[in-house]
Design a protein around this nucleic acid. Structure first.
Lengths: 216, 216
DNA sequence: TGTACATCAGTGAACGCGCGTTCACTGATGTAC
DNA sequence: TGTACATCAGTGAACGCGCGTTCACTGATGTAC
């Protein structure tokens, strides 16, 4: 599965799209061996260029990884925003979609997720990276803002806290059970259901749902 | 901080305690540069022996890491069991201690925590590793068992699910905000408080607390 | 208590390997006129 | 439209380095008698 390589049709002296190819190489290699499991030279080999070529596009391996993380956060933010859809048709349904979309991303884009949260890329490596990560979190936060407005003003919890809680639950599930690799634990139920139940119980704890208690 | 090395007092031909020293070396190096950031040779150097010496004790770097993870889970299980203390003096207080103890471990033993949850060590690398990890989780599960018994039998959720929920929340917070390194996000409140609030809201959602809503 | 011997836990030199990085280079592309 | 030239994006050879791993070895320790 090397969609970065023209494989048959041999390319000329110039690759033409090496930067993109390197990103794809990084993703493929992360998926295969984890974020620490590949080298700059590997990426070059995967893209079918000489080991010196990547230096035209990235200062070093770190910079490539940071770029992958940045792109990941941008895709992530877009996916979350689309799922949230400004809270339509109603907040509960939209919130549910938001959580599922988060898990979906972790499951279907494990390489991006890895680069974003597990590769140890410092967020300040690149202002654009930090910005992308904040944009993604802003979606969650905006959703929390709207949610807490459903509560009576008196005992209303800080929206930021609610956002952090939901983020933690979701990331916890994604990171412990979300992916299918060997290091993860087996689960008696799908991760999506585990998350949905957890968020429902949490929201009920906030007084936000009138639903039946779990188990009924 | 090389407590593994006799430093001044030069040792003889035999190290005497190399296995332990290698474990300490791994912990120190993980703390310094992350679980992927050290080599077998590094560990030997840190312990002050030749690069061939570690082979007398571990098949390879993976085996060393797995041993560190195993020891980590054993310490972890002991800490959790002590905090839970069979639910004394009452379940709520004991449960609160349990969560705090989890976060404590993540914060004070980041190197162990890393080896256990982030180094990608497959649990089946070693039966003892798997067993240790299950012993740790069993504490959480036993606590959840007792907790759900407080609920009316009718709408009682599966204890396993409750245990997984709490584990996810805690691991999520620990992994996103628990440690002080550069890759983590800043928080408007201490991680312990964030967790405590989250668990309280969750338990209220289960109908388990009569406490006031947050913010009052 | 002494001695011979087996076993254990280290040494240090050596190897092949792949990595990161640099360098002068060259083929391809774009642009000014 | 053609040509000269600058710039760009690759090459490939080279380097020093540290790693993982092996090997025959040796010093220290434990034990049988």
């Amino acid at each position: 599965m090397k969609w970065g390589k023209p494989d048959n049709e041999p390319r000329g002296y110039h690759h033409g799209n090496l930067k993109e190819a390197l990103v794809r190489a990084a993703l493929a290699l992360i998926a295969e061996k984890g974020p620490a499991g590949f080298t700059f030279a590997d990426a070059a080999r995967w893209a079918g260029v000489s080991p010196a070529a990547p230096y035209r596009h990235y200062r070093d391996r770190e910079a490539l990884l940071a770029d992958v993380a940045r792109r990941g956060f941008e895709l992530f933010a877009a996916a979350l925003a689309k799922a949230w859809d400004e809270g339509r048709p109603d907040l509960m349904r939209a919130f549910d979609r938001l959580g599922k979309s988060y898990l979906d991303f972790a499951k279907n884009q494990p390489a991006y997720y890895s680069a974003m949260f597990e590769a140890g890329v410092p967020l300040d490596a690149d202002p654009q990276l930090r910005e992308a990560s904040e944009t993604a979190f802003a979606v969650l936060r905006a959703a929390a803002e709207k949610l807490v407005l459903l509560m009576p003003a008196k005992g209303r919890p800080p929206a930021l806290m609610v956002a952090l809680h939901v983020w933690s639950m979701t990331h916890g599930i994604a990171s412990l059970f979300g992916r299918g690799d060997a290091a993860r634990r087996a689960l008696p139920m799908p991760a999506e259901e585990l998350l949905e139940a957890s968020v429902l119980i949490y929201l009920r704890g906030l007084g936000l749902t009138a639903g039946a208690p779990p188990g009924d």
